[in-house]
Simulated assay, not measured.
Amino acid sequence: MPKMMLHVNTKRIQHDEFEKDKANGTKRVLEVDFAMSFSCEYQNEIQSALWSRASVVLFTAAVFCNGNCKTYILCSDTNNKDKDTVFVFLDFFYTEILKENSAISEEIIWSDGPSSEFKNKFMVKTLEILNQKHNRTFTWKYFATSHGKGVVDGVGGNIKRLVRMKMMTQGEGCTIQSAKDFAEVAAQLDTKSHLWYIEEDHIRNEILSQNPWRNVPSIPGIKEFHIITCSTSSGFYAKNNALSTKIALSNPKGNLFNFPGKWVVVCYEGKEYPGEVVDASGDQVQVSVMVPTGPPHHFKWPRQPDCICYLKEDVAREISPPVVVNNRGLFKFIDI
């Protein structure tokens, strides 16, 4: 029940924050999402055609600014919804589509939080690159899990419905066997959304030319964050939700955490354990953890030291050192 209450609370806080951002005239909100890929079909196809259908990746977006909403669709022949695709699409938005506006003080990206697409260290690096290119604050905000539905979902569903109806219409149908075909037909059917076609080769060439994934640091505890900001003046900071306190990560070019000698909470097999960092190297951190004992929130050192290496992504957060409870080796943490 406490986890459910925390989830509902986060959902409400983030929803209120989204509405406030849309109403703020000094902020421009870009809500993004991947729609389910469109499957290219023939009007009268044989069964074996099922195994050779091409698919179209759809990246839908809605821009909210000064009380106005404009919708956009990027379609591509790539089969990947990974960091490279997201980076190139976002870079295209802010470089080619969204014009510079001196009245805008902050660019805000809203999305749901799948780690494979949006909520990972590569998207934090993307914020840094966008910040450097456009010299303004960029913030990525996430809806609570399973509560990210919005305008963008309707945009993706509607364009797929229109194209499929056209494709299956007897006598007036059309053949769509590629993302380029889809883009041409969709542009004629949906006059409300702005649509662009981006080739997979363009994505590949942009990644090769910009090489954005140099020196990408780990972000321990990123799964708990719902707001991550990159500011030219304040550097990186994160928040668990819109009402929580800021957690300073570092300046954009620095290492996000100085691990050795710190006390942290690590996640192991679904449970959290407090411990002291012994060493850190690459993507791993060695932590000597304590075990729970006696009254709630009390811990002790195990008889045999439990000191192993964890991925830095498994470090949930930094905490204060423990306080001695008695002379029998009992400790407690003010942060737990």
Rank of each mutant, 00 (worst) to 15 (best):
K3L: 14
H7M: 06
N9I: 05
E17R: 12
E19H: 12
A23M: 05
N24A: 12
N24Q: 11
K27V: 15
L30A: 07
V32T: 08
F34G: 01
F34C: 02
A35N: 11
W51F: 15
V56N: 00
L58V: 01
K70W: 08
K70G: 00
D77H: 05
T78C: 04
N80G: 00
D82H: 08
D82T: 01
V88R: 01
A103Q: 12
E107H: 05
I108C: 07
I109V: 11
G113E: 07
P114S: 09
P114K: 03
S116M: 04
S116K: 08
F118K: 02
K121L: 03
V124P: 00
L127I: 14
L130Y: 07
N131E: 15
K133D: 13
K133R: 15
H134E: 04
T137S: 06
T139W: 01
W140H: 10
F143I: 09
T145C: 02
G148W: 04
G150R: 08
V152E: 05
G154A: 03
I159L: 04
K160G: 00
R161M: 07
R161F: 06
L162S: 09
V163P: 02
C174W: 02
T175L: 06
Q177M: 11
K192C: 05
L195G: 05
Y197P: 02
I198E: 01
E200K: 12
H202T: 12
E206I: 07
S209I: 09
I219G: 02
G221R: 11
G221N: 10
I228R: 01
I228H: 07
C230F: 01
F236T: 06
A238M: 11
N240M: 04
N241V: 10
N241D: 15
T245F: 03
S250E: 11
N251S: 10
N255Y: 09
F257E: 08
F257A: 10
N258Y: 10
P260A: 04
G261S: 10
E272V: 04
E276K: 15
E276T: 06
V277S: 01
S281I: 11
Q284D: 12
V289L: 05
M290W: 09
V291C: 05
P292I: 12
P292D: 12
T293I: 04
T293E: 10
G294Q: 12
Q304R: 14
C307N: 13
D314E: 15
P322T: 08
V323F: 01
R328H: 11
R328Y: 12
F331E: 02
F331T: 03
